[in-house]
Design a protein around this nucleic acid. Structure first.
Lengths: 198, 198
DNA sequence: ACCTGAACACCGTTCAAGT
DNA sequence: ACCTGAACACCGTTCAAGT
């Protein structure tokens, strides 16, 4: 009469994540996931609506792990120093989990609300430093320069796009430094900052 | 005895490109491509080794079209102006062909030599302007800042990642301006050139 | 309650047979 | 030469039947 579960949502997501990282998200199957947790494929459908829903759950896990990695970066009172070390942590995570990283920004993946929220939460750790660097009204535009650079750099690096020689580490360090310098120079002078534009 | 071809390599690639743009590269099948050119799936294998090889051929076409779009951008003697309009052309192309754009940077796709070469050729149009802006020894690092920003911005835009309001166009324009300003300031000063040169 | 085999409608790919 | 049906080993997904 009873029928004790052989697995759990969480175990399935972890197994799916491991498979995504090993073979890429287009090379992983519901059969593989089921086998990894000791069950048959149809059982997965009792817990996740379909393959896309399971991949969304993996995305949320990866975003959350990436957010933790960035939040763990050494901090500093100097926002440039703090943001630089957060950028390094971001790149390290992406290089350590290249296929998972590809999954979380895959435009072919569903645009799930939970995935989007997990992404925004992952970047929350950097927001105070951005505000400190450029001031609150400019933090959004600044984030929309720094984050695209970061994402573009690491995804091109993962895709093997930097083939013309030279140090990739150095290019990254200098790129981050250039962009942070440009952003802080965009900051308006402080003295009369009371008056808001409009 | 004879058996005249019903189609051609080129027609197949064009049909495949159209399908990629319509349904994304994970949603297109050899059957679809075959049907689009009036043939059965096995016939494709006489011309392309497998699905991956056909996708590689599509990638090359897309890179080449992107390269032409960038090369067509209005030019200028001022490298900042010229690079800015090339950046706009790049973004326009990506927005007009979002799924094709996703294909050419897909890290899950094969790293074909022909694809890599097509990518490098696509960026060749921007190189002279970069050299004019930062000098030849720094052009590589500068390209490794500007291009990742561009790629990151447009791929995040395509993925629907900018959800916090504000003008995305404005963020792009300001990001490009910030980065180009930073790159040109990285240029070592010529001895007495505190004064502006023409 | 949870799991499963069987079934369905698809895939990519190969290959012998057709013209 | 080029194309094709049939076949193979897979997919994701559903569902009635098992405990």
């Amino acid at each position: 009469m009873p029928a004790p579960p052989k697995t759990s949502d969480d175990e399935i997501v972890q197994a799916a994540w491991k498979l995504v990282e090993r073979q890429g998200h287009s090379g992983f199957s519901m059969n593989d996931v089921a086998a990894a947790v000791g069950v048959r494929a149809p059982s997965i459908y009792g817990r996740f609506a379909d393959r896309a829903a399971l991949l969304t759950a993996v995305q949320v896990e990866v975003w959350s792990a990436l957010g933790r990695a960035v939040a763990r970066a050494p901090t500093s009172a100097d926002p440039v120093v703090a943001l630089t070390s957060q950028c390094r942590a971001y790149r390290s995570f992406a290089k350590a989990h290249p296929r998972s990283y590809a999954l979380i920004f895959d435009p072919a993946a569903e645009r799930s609300e939970s995935g989007q929220q997990a992404r925004e939460a992952a970047f929350a750790a950097a927001l105070p430093q951005l505000v400190a660097l450029v001031g609150e009204p400019r933090a959004l535009v600044a984030g929309r320069t720094l984050v695209p650079y970061l994402h573009g750099f690491v995804s091109m690096e993962i895709a093997g796009a930097f083939r013309l020689g030279g140090s990739i580490d150095e290019a990254f360090e200098r790129g981050v430094a250039s962009i942070l310098a440009a952003l802080s120079e965009d900051r308006p002078r402080r003295r009369t900052s009371r008056s808001r534009d409009q």
